[in-house]
Design a protein around this nucleic acid. Structure first.
Lengths: 204, 204
DNA sequence: CCCTATAAAAATGTATACATTTTTAAGAAG
DNA sequence: CTTCTTAAAAATGTATACATTTTTATAGGG
């Protein structure tokens, strides 16, 4: 396992408190590697929002910022709606079927961890987006999703929220199957907006 | 000057042909540094689209891709419109005045290089966007703009295009001054769309 | 003649060592 | 007691050296 992944996992799990400043040498010692791989991992994690530049004093674990969450979800609302719109002409029974399989898998296993649910959640969305055949747009959306992951973390959402979210997933599929892409887009936007609201609320 | 900037400048100027594969050791020798700073610079340039991963064979100078340009400008249309919308409540005479100063500076000096025009162009947009006070959204828009820079390059646009672009800039300011943000947003979207079309056309 | 296996070559990943810069703290002057 | 200066300490940036992985070329078999 690469240092990047080890460090990211630890950041996800909250090993380092928000606001803490980390130095290259400190991380090198903690993970028992030299500073070279630390530099690589840290730079990558900075570009994903898991660490922020702290001048020449090293890097800091960023504080949780409700305004950042709002921005991220506003962007996702618009870009994911666009991506779904571009995917619609390419969607067929096979793709929609595979997407539904992912949803069904989430339903069937009632004792999945929050992390596993989150992974399948994204797989569902990505399976639709990929059909658009727009790698650049997809890459940006994926990056925004990764930035959100820091806030989603490992904490489990309420059962109520989870049920609503899952219902919306099926509604999106149904709208797409019945040749109503506008409706699907609308549900998707509201779906993302609701996720953002839930997260902001959780931060307070 | 950092290796990152030296390498980026050379990529902008087309020192390395699109499709060319570059190895760490090759770059280290060309720029007379060790491979350590090469690794840092290359990773940063990859995240900005100036280089693409070529597996374990090194990095490649990416080919020009009309679909990528289309994606980038579609995203910018939506996100910059959003950012302007969020900025509107914070705009005042001072901010609008400073934005206009930037435009006037472009008018006054008739023998600016394409690179200088491009820089002022972005300064104008950024001066409005900054007012929104949304760092995360702004950072994403800025990153998209940087990805576009690879295509804009150093080539000069037609005088006709430049005149139209500048007229639209003034129209945006006028609409904002007259309390018509919806109109300003519309012009902005068309402004960005036109820039994208001009670029795609230029690639063919 | 083509394909596979193996060895040599080359490239990347990483550790150690050194140079340069930045930060921090101590001490002297006001 | 505060502030500026200066020196020590610590942190980052970079070069060199080594280990590991990957690529490529060659030789043998089908």
């Amino acid at each position: 396992m690469s240092l990047y992944q080890r460090l990211k996992t630890d950041l996800q799990r909250g090993r380092f408190a928000p606001g803490r400043v980390l130095k290259q040498s400190e991380l090198a010692e903690l993970y028992d590697v030299s500073r070279i791989p630390v530099r690589d991992a840290v730079q990558k994690l900075k570009s994903e929002g898991w660490l922020t530049d702290h001048g020449k004093r090293g890097v800091a674990v960023p504080l949780f910022d409700a305004l950042e969450v709002e921005d991220l979800y506003l962007m996702r609302m618009r870009l994911e709606a666009l991506l779904l719109e571009l995917a619609v002409p390419h969607l067929n029974r096979e793709i929609l079927g595979r997407a539904e399989d992912i949803l069904d898998r989430m339903e069937r296993d009632p004792q999945m961890t929050a992390a596993e649910i989150g992974a399948l959640n994204w797989q569902f969305h990505a399976s639709l987006y990929q059909a658009a055949g727009r790698p650049t747009l997809f890459a940006t959306v994926e990056q925004l999703h990764r930035q959100c992951e820091r806030y989603i973390g490992y904490q489990s959402r309420s059962l109520d929220y989870q049920a609503t979210s899952q219902r919306e997933h099926y509604e999106i599929l149904a709208a797409l199957r019945h040749g109503n892409p506008d409706k699907a887009e609308k549900i998707l936007q509201e779906h993302i907006a609701a996720a953002g609201r839930a997260l902001v609320q959780h931060l307070s």
